[in-house]
């Protein structure tokens, strides 16, 4: 019994270590003063006001949403199509395709960033929004493929046969039977792709144009270049946005989507 108690205490301690730093930002963001201490000298919403009236931050938020939205769309479509092909077709070199798909996930971001930086400079894609979306899609799309493949693994091929035996042509069978059943997987992959792009920093640092600040890049600049306490308010809002994505992902997982 003491062993279990010790285990529980150790786990609780580690969980505290995981959560406390993130939660500590919340009161700091509500501080009335410039100096960040706990508890704050006074409470105010001044940093939130500063954040919401700052064109820099608003532009960064807009850029992040545009890039993550476009990435999600592109990765969602390409990833879902590819997962369908990989699942239903007997492709030669399936293993090689899956390995190529996993490569961007295990390759250090800085290496991918360096490679794309050189390639985009030569191809004239450096500093373009399109190039940035392509790069984000490369690192997000594996999650879509994985999630859709996972939901297809639970798909009973007899259902397709049943649909056809009941008079459904292949296109109708796909639309009425396959698509609704893998929808949670597609959505889960899309949520993960959105979060990946929304969080992405290193590729953005090297591939985005000088004016194309996303939220992570703006936070980095605000922490590293000129300390700006507004960053705490931004971090809290970004944290809340991540929690929305987490909720969406968990809800989808309970509906049979999700990764793992």
């Amino acid at each position: 019994m003491t062993a279990r108690l010790l285990l529980g205490l150790a786990a609780a301690g580690v969980l505290l270590f995981l959560l406390a730093p993130i939660l500590a930002i919340l009161p700091l963001s509500l501080s009335a003063g410039e100096i960040l201490r706990l508890p704050p000298e006074g409470w105010s919403l001044r940093w939130y006001a500063a954040l919401l009236s700052s064109e820099r931050w608003l532009l960064a938020a807009r850029n992040s949403l545009v890039v993550a939205g476009a990435t999600t769309l592109l990765a969602g479509v390409l990833g879902t199509l590819a997962a369908l092909g990989l699942h239903f077709g007997r492709l030669p070199g399936r293993g090689a395709i899956l390995a190529l798909l996993a490569a961007p996930v295990v390759t250090p971001s800085i290496v991918t960033a360096a490679a794309l930086f050189l390639a985009y400079s030569a191809a004239g894609l450096a500093g373009t929004l399109f190039g940035l979306v392509l790069a984000h899609t490369v690192i997000s799309v594996p999650f879509v493929v994985l999630a859709v493949l996972a939901s297809l693994r639970g798909f009973d091929p007899a259902l397709l046969r049943a649909a056809e035996s009941l008079g459904a042509p292949p296109a109708a069978a796909f639309r009425r039977v396959v698509l609704p059943l893998i929808a949670p997987g597609v959505a889960a992959g899309a949520v993960f792709a959105f979060a990946t792009s929304f969080d992405e920093f290193i590729l953005t640092l090297f591939l985005a144009g000088p004016g194309q600040f996303t939220l992570p890049r703006q936070i980095y600049a605000a922490v590293r270049d000129v300390w700006d306490p507004t960053v705490c308010a931004a971090a809290v809002l970004l944290f809340l946005a991540s929690m929305l994505l987490l909720l969406a992902s968990e809800a989808l997982r309970r509906r049979g989507g999700g990764i793992g």
């Binding site: 590819a82 077709g89 190529l100 490569a103 290496v111 490679a115 390639a119 392509l134």
Partner: peptide, 27 residues
């Protein structure tokens, strides 16, 4: 079926080759 499956995978394959494999190789 094999050809259709390949066509489904092709766009992603192109993206990964053009925007990942070739750049890494070139680097």
């Amino acid at each position: 079926g094999g050809i259709a499956a390949f066509l489904l995978v092709l766009p992603l394959l192109l993206l990964l080759v053009l925007s990942f494999a070739l750049p890494v190789g070139r680097m």
